[in-house]
Amino acid sequence: MSLRLPSEIVVEDVLPTLRVLLARELAEHGLTQREVAAHLGVTQAAVSTYLNGDPELEPRIADHPETAATVERVAAGLAEGEMDGYDALSAVLELIRSFEDRGPICELHEEAMPGLQGLGCDLCVRGANPELRTERAVLDSVREASRLLATTPAVVDHVPNVGTNVGTALPDADGPADVAAVPGRIYVMNGSVEVPANPEFGASEHVATTVLAATAVDPDRRGALNLATDDALLAAARDRGLDVLEFDAGYEDRGERLRERFADRGVVPDVLFHRGAFGIEPITYVLGETGAAAARLAVELVETAE
C-alpha cells in the first residue's frame, strides 16, 4: 500500500485549487495581480496563470458549496480590510478540517491509498486509538475472507442464488451495525466469484443475525459465511468431526431461535444449515472465530466436497 499523508493531499490537491479560486475572487473585487499575489504568498506570474491560463482544478474541492462560501468570505474580508492574513488562514484551515472529516479530502486520500477504502478512517479527526484498530482488524478479516472466496475456484459451485456474504462482529457486538460484511453480497458472474465492494459495518442483516446469535453464547465465535446447502459439503464437515446442526429455515425470530438452540446445547456449531422452505433457498453457514477463519474452513470443505 502506497504511503500518502493527508497533508500531502492538502498541499498537492487542495491548496492549488483554493489559490486559483481565491485569486479569481480577489480579482473580481478589483485587486491588482500584485495585490492578489501578496495576499496568497505566490508570484505575480502565478497569479497571471490563475487568472488567464487554464490551471487544473480538483473538482471535488472546486465545486463544493463549502469551498464557494469560504472563498467568497475570505476574498471579501481581505479586499475590504476586514480580514488579515491570520483570519484568512484560520478560515481556510476550518474548511480543510471540515473536508478531512469524511469529506472530499478523505475521498482523495482513499484514492491515493486504496487500502484505506472501507475502513471508516478517522485519523485526521481523532487520531489513532484502540477502537479504530479493532474496527480495522474486523474489516481486514472480512476483506481477507472475500479474497479467499474469490480466488478459490471450487467456491463457484457453492454460492447460492441469493449470493454469499461473510461477516465478522466487533467484540461485544450488540446489533447488525457492529457486524462488518460485504455490501450487496458476493455473487457468481461468468463462472467467477465477484466481490462487489469493500466491507462495511451493517452491510448484511442475514449474516449478522447468525453471527450475533453465536456471539451471544460464545463470544469467540464472531465470524460466519453462507453457502448453498449441499450434502457433499455437509458430509465433508461430519467426516472432519465438525459439529453440524440443522435448524428451521423460517426468518421470523431466527436470531432468537438460534440463540436458544445454541444456549440449550451449550456450544455453537461449526456448521449450521437448513433445507429451505417456500420461497427460502437452502442455506448453510460456516462459523469461526472471524470471517476469515470461517472462510478458510469453508474453502477446505468445498474443496473436499468436489
Results as ranks from 00 to 15, higher is better:
Ala213Tyr: 09
Glu205Trp: 13
Val207Pro: 00
Asp231Val: 13
Val207Trp: 06
Gly241Pro: 09
Ala214Val: 01
Asp231Gln: 13
Val207Glu: 06
Ala235Asp: 15
Ala213Leu: 09
Asn226Pro: 10
Phe247Met: 01
Leu225Arg: 12
Asp230Lys: 04
Thr209Ile: 00
Asp218Pro: 01
Glu246Phe: 00
Leu233Asp: 01
Asp220Ile: 06
Ala224Pro: 05
Val244Ala: 12
Ala232Val: 13
Asp231Met: 03
Ala237Gly: 05
Val217Trp: 09
Ala228His: 08
Glu205Phe: 13
Val217Asp: 13
Thr215His: 05
Pro219Trp: 09
Asp230Trp: 00
Leu234Tyr: 15
Leu233Ile: 11
Arg238Phe: 12
Arg238Val: 10
Arg221Phe: 13
Val217Ser: 08
Arg240Trp: 15
Val211Ile: 00
Asp220Val: 07
Leu233Pro: 04
Ala228Trp: 04
Ala213Glu: 07
Pro219Leu: 10
Ala237Thr: 00
Arg238Lys: 10
Arg240Thr: 06
Arg222Cys: 10
Ala214His: 02
Ala208His: 08
Asn226Met: 12
Ala216Ser: 09
Leu234Thr: 14
Ala236Val: 04
Thr209Trp: 02
Asp218Val: 05
Asp218Leu: 12
Glu205Cys: 03
Ala216His: 03
Ala208Glu: 06
Ala213Phe: 06
Gly223Ser: 05
Asp230Glu: 04
Leu212Arg: 08
Leu234Asn: 14
Ala232Cys: 11
Thr215Gly: 05
Thr229Pro: 00
Asp231Ile: 07
Val244Pro: 09
Asp230Gln: 00
Ala236Thr: 05
Val217Gly: 08
Leu225Pro: 08
Ala236Lys: 08
Phe247Val: 13
His206Asn: 07
Leu242Phe: 10
Leu212Gln: 07
Leu242Val: 02
Thr229Trp: 03
Glu205Asn: 12
Ala235Trp: 07
Phe247Ser: 04
Ala216Pro: 01
Ala237Glu: 04
Pro219Val: 10
Arg240Ala: 15
Val244Ile: 11
Ala236Ser: 06
Asn226Ile: 13
Leu245Tyr: 06
Asp231Arg: 12
Ala235Phe: 03
Val211Phe: 09
Ala216Phe: 03
Val207Leu: 04
Thr229Ser: 07
Glu205Thr: 10
Val217Gln: 11
Ala236His: 09
Ala235Pro: 00
Ala208Gly: 05
His206Phe: 14
Glu205Val: 11
Leu242Gln: 03
Asp230Met: 04
Ala216Gln: 07
Leu233Glu: 03
Thr229Gly: 01
Gly241Phe: 11
Leu225Trp: 14
Ala224Thr: 06
Glu246Cys: 01
Ala228Val: 11
Val207Ser: 00
Arg240Ile: 08
Leu227Thr: 12
Glu246Gln: 01
Leu242Asp: 01
